[in-house]
Simulated scan of single mutants.
Amino acid sequence: MAVIIENDKIRAVINEHGAELSSLIAKGTGIDYMWSGDAKYWGRHSPVLFPIEGKLKNDSYHFNGQEYHMTQHGFARDQDFAVVECDDQHATFELTQNAATKEKYPFDFRLHLTYLVKDTTLTLDYSVYNPADEQELFFALGAHPAFKAPLMPNEKYTDYELTFAPAKTRKKIPLANSLTDPMHEFDVNENRLAVSRELFKNDALIYNLQQEPTKITLQDTKQKHGIQVGTKDAKYVGIWSAYPKDGQFVCIEPWWGLADPQDADGELTHKFAINKLASHQEFKAGFSVSLF
């Protein structure tokens, strides 16, 4: 089942399975800005990354002396969410613990995703709540939206570019075999990037945003149309596309967490960039996607 929210300018379609945004259409042009999800290249549109972002070393972790196994990006993207609020322009989706999640993750939790359309912008707000009376909740969270590039039939993938605002020097985090090396992040001044297949030959580009407000724009080089992702407090952003496959999309991924470092010891409470919630506390985050 899918939920549609819309105003007079944009329409968003969100699947209850994974609470995944599958379509984002500008009504004036009919352009759908989201990747089609063609499994030949990458079979998703905009998965929710919870309760981990990225990969665990050996796909496993330990908590309270017990070993648990979880594959890359966690389980939320493969769970059915409940729709708990919905009207023409907004919808809230909920996921809580169940027997399947408890096998991989021993915590009670409540995850809410709220989608809202306003003018030509879609906002996505996250809420993570710890319902336990005594136990702390450890988690990471992330987004993985894939935006179509090119958007127009007379364009090519390489007609697009990425720009960052504010323009500044940022820390970049090495990634190898899907594991990170945050202790060796290094300064880069990469505020404008030409989109090409070779740009992603070493997997995702990861930037430390230091929770500073940031806008990342994907647009054609003539700057006629594209999208702008805005985040107020993301810890990191990942930029990714298929390589060497010729997938016609670019992912701009705000993250509140990070894949395991290569030297991770496997203890969840030690996990780099993990978030921790006390009993009955709530974590909030979010980002926006503006169309032009």
Results as ranks from 00 to 15, higher is better:
7 N>F: 11
10 I>W: 05
14 I>P: 01
15 N>A: 10
16 E>M: 06
17 H>R: 13
17 H>K: 14
18 G>R: 09
27 K>F: 09
28 G>Y: 05
28 G>D: 09
30 G>Q: 06
40 K>D: 12
41 Y>C: 12
41 Y>E: 14
42 W>Y: 10
47 P>I: 02
51 P>D: 04
65 G>E: 08
68 Y>V: 11
72 Q>G: 11
73 H>F: 03
77 R>W: 10
83 V>H: 06
87 D>S: 12
92 T>I: 11
93 F>M: 10
97 Q>Y: 05
104 K>F: 08
107 F>D: 10
112 H>N: 15
112 H>E: 15
114 T>G: 00
121 T>P: 02
123 T>M: 12
124 L>N: 04
124 L>A: 07
126 Y>F: 08
135 Q>D: 15
137 L>N: 01
142 G>N: 01
144 H>G: 00
150 P>K: 10
151 L>Q: 08
153 P>Y: 06
155 E>P: 03
157 Y>S: 04
164 F>R: 07
164 F>V: 13
170 R>K: 13
171 K>W: 00
171 K>E: 06
190 E>P: 01
191 N>L: 08
200 F>L: 02
200 F>K: 06
203 D>A: 01
205 L>T: 05
209 L>K: 04
213 P>V: 08
213 P>Q: 01
214 T>K: 01
216 I>M: 06
216 I>E: 02
216 I>Q: 00
216 I>D: 07
223 Q>I: 10
226 G>R: 02
234 A>S: 15
239 I>K: 01
240 W>Y: 08
244 P>T: 08
252 I>N: 03
258 L>Y: 05
263 D>I: 01
265 D>K: 03
275 N>C: 12
277 L>C: 13
281 Q>K: 12
281 Q>P: 08
283 F>T: 09
284 K>R: 05
284 K>A: 14
284 K>H: 13
286 G>F: 06
287 F>L: 10
287 F>N: 00
